[in-house]
């Protein structure tokens, strides 16, 4: 299962980014320890960035998203695509957020 985490840079050691639609990078990990970071083309977009970013990560095959905060439009888009969304926060690395998720310490977004 592919998990997407919002990050300020590429890879697991970069800092976690709380914003979703305008996050600089999306880092994807899967069960086989596959790792891929994708630069977000919508960081400077002019509207509709939340749903468009949602579409992008869903097209990329993610089933779970971990981010800090997201707007209603993005949340609705993710919900309609059957995504599970968890939220985290604070100054920590993408890897640390993933550890929190795997330890079951993250709250699902209602």
């Amino acid at each position: 299962m592919k998990i997407c985490v919002t990050g300020q840079g590429e890879g697991l050691q970069s800092r976690f980014e709380e914003r979703f639609g305008r996050a600089p990078f999306f880092t994807f990990v899967d069960d086989e320890n596959g790792l891929e970071s994708l630069a977000n083309p919508y960081t400077d977009g002019s509207g509709g960035v939340g749903p468009r970013a949602a579409q992008l990560i869903m097209d990329h095959g993610a089933k779970v998203l971990i981010t800090g905060r997201l707007g209603d439009n993005a949340a609705n888009a993710l919900r309609s695509g059957g995504m599970k969304v968890y939220t985290s926060g604070g100054d920590q690395s993408v890897a640390a957020v993933l550890d929190e998720y795997r330890a079951g310490r993250l709250q699902p977004l209602q």
Binding site: G48, V49, P51, R52, M58, N76, A77, S80, G81, G82
Partner: peptide, 21 residues
């Protein structure tokens, strides 16, 4: 993918429209 306004997003059951966008 075409919509530049993020008004249409593919859900599990087809595209979903946010009419205000």
């Amino acid at each position: 993918r075409f919509c530049r306004y993020g008004a249409l997003v593919m859900g599990l059951n087809g595209p979903n429209l946010n009419p205000q966008m």
